[in-house]
Simulated scan of single mutants.
Amino acid sequence: MTEQSPVKYKRVLLKLSGESLMGPDAFGINRETIQSTVEDIKEAYDMGVQIGIVVGGGNIFRGVALGSTGMERTQGDHMGMLATLMNALALQDALRKNGVEARVQSALNIERIAESYIRGKALRHLEKGRIVIFAAGTGNPYFTTDTTAALRGAEIGADIVLKATMVDGIYSADPKKVPDATFYKTITFDEVIKRDLKVMDATAFALCREQNLPIKVFNIRKKGSIARVCRGEDEGTLVYNP
């Protein structure tokens, strides 16, 4: 890992959705898409940024959806946690094949597959130049991976949470459904919560607000966007405490 250009954020928590790994496929992991994502992560890594990652599992399993079709919610959420572990292992493999050492830490105890989440150990990995991928959510049902990202970001002392989406940032409404929706370059946590803008869940926003941990919402499909955010360039929407 070499520092090639100045960065604004030296330690970040990147939140990836499971869907962002699907690419054009209906489900699962698209190899070209995960390779492109890893290349973008490596670009930021090569600048000297310490990176923690939380990945969702919606491309494999979504417990909330099953809860509405008869499966008990806790059981469904536990299955969703295992889906995030599968995505984490796929990311780890892709990162290693691109020359980046990565560790998976799981909130569920699965020692033969991944390390158990230990904050001190995660910090040491980051300081030694390893990417840490946090899997299995918080280890508890009813908490989303967005909330996990806020929690892990606070725990590792991240400078910012990077929320990767499929749009350019936060809008007043879904820009795919409302073409003239207002785009926000900056917005406060209070405004996001008050307007019920659902780019992340309210618990995640509230936790980041309490910890004074800003969030940058950006488009993961734009090549090089992770590195641009880490350099502090004009990319996406910044959610902050005024």
Results as ranks from 00 to 15, higher is better:
residue 211 Q to K: 15
residue 191 E to Q: 14
residue 121 K to F: 08
residue 119 R to D: 07
residue 167 V to I: 14
residue 165 T to D: 05
residue 110 I to G: 03
residue 114 A to F: 01
residue 223 K to Q: 13
residue 225 S to F: 01
residue 129 G to I: 06
residue 145 T to R: 08
residue 208 C to W: 02
residue 216 K to S: 11
residue 166 M to H: 12
residue 163 K to G: 00
residue 169 G to C: 02
residue 221 R to N: 15
residue 111 E to V: 11
residue 156 I to R: 11
residue 123 L to I: 13
residue 223 K to P: 03
residue 198 K to A: 11
residue 202 A to Y: 11
residue 171 Y to K: 09
residue 201 D to F: 01
residue 179 P to H: 04
residue 113 I to H: 13
residue 184 Y to V: 08
residue 108 L to W: 03
residue 113 I to C: 12
residue 184 Y to T: 04
residue 132 V to K: 03
residue 130 R to Q: 15
residue 201 D to A: 06
residue 135 A to W: 00
residue 205 F to V: 08
residue 131 I to G: 06
residue 170 I to E: 00
residue 171 Y to Q: 04
residue 130 R to Y: 12
residue 216 K to F: 09
residue 181 A to R: 03
residue 172 S to G: 07
residue 185 K to T: 13
residue 192 V to E: 01
residue 128 K to L: 13
residue 176 K to A: 14
residue 172 S to E: 12
residue 174 D to L: 07
residue 109 N to W: 09
residue 175 P to I: 11
residue 189 F to S: 12
residue 123 L to F: 03
residue 165 T to G: 04
residue 189 F to L: 10
residue 171 Y to P: 00
residue 122 A to I: 10
residue 201 D to R: 02
residue 141 P to T: 06
residue 116 S to T: 11
residue 226 I to Y: 01
residue 224 G to F: 07
residue 180 D to W: 04
residue 212 N to Y: 08
residue 137 G to Q: 01
residue 109 N to I: 09
residue 155 E to D: 14
residue 206 A to C: 10
residue 157 G to N: 09
residue 212 N to E: 14
residue 127 E to G: 10
residue 108 L to R: 06
residue 215 I to M: 05
residue 220 I to K: 03
residue 226 I to D: 02
residue 153 G to N: 07
residue 169 G to F: 01
residue 175 P to Q: 10
residue 175 P to R: 12
residue 191 E to F: 09
residue 157 G to T: 05
residue 201 D to P: 01
residue 118 I to L: 13
residue 183 F to C: 08
residue 197 L to W: 01
residue 183 F to Q: 10
residue 220 I to M: 04
residue 124 R to P: 00
residue 169 G to R: 04
residue 187 I to F: 05
residue 117 Y to M: 13
residue 190 D to W: 08
residue 135 A to S: 15
residue 145 T to F: 05
residue 131 I to N: 04
residue 210 E to K: 15
residue 159 D to V: 09
residue 139 G to D: 06
residue 191 E to A: 14
residue 193 I to C: 13
residue 163 K to A: 02
residue 173 A to F: 08
residue 181 A to C: 08
residue 198 K to G: 05
residue 200 M to Y: 02
residue 195 R to T: 10
residue 122 A to Y: 07
residue 137 G to L: 02
